[in-house]
Amino acid sequence: MLKPVHRKASLFLIALAVFYLILAYRLESFTAGPIGADTMPKILGWLLILLSVILFFFKDQETEEEKQSRRIAKNDLIKMAGVLLLTFCYIFLLERVGFIVTSFLFIWLCSWFLGYQKHVKNIVTAVLFPVVLYSLFTFMLGIALPSGILPF
């Protein structure tokens, strides 16, 4: 019964709506009137449940091709996870190490990881792009990006 993917999606959405509703019913409302901070969230929660139930009973109209598009090769999945991990590192280090160094590392390593083989070009771009952006932001526009370990 749960085979069609839209039914799984529907159940997930119902779970989300229930979670949202639980929080909504726990909201305190200070206004005396009938419409408070909790009115809209409650309506939204119930609406989402209603829509998800309708979705559940819809006919499965997915073509084989569309199903295929959801299947991601293991190889690609690894690449995505890797890029995600590199991005986490980027965020984590941005304010600690500074914009230029972190961005350089990110562009260089991420491009390399995704299979870019021209190392010289890679490094040159990875240096130039952040430096230009940083100078524009910090020196011309007066919007200070984190300088981190570099002295300027």
């Binding site: 690894i78 590199l86 190490v97 160094v101 390593l109 390399w112 990881f113 981190g148």
Partner: peptide, 22 residues
Amino acid sequence: KKSLVLSLSLFTVLGLAACGTE
């Protein structure tokens, strides 16, 4: 896979080194 591990470790090592100095 190797290149991922390499990238990541390079990134963290450089990052940590930088953190330390800061």
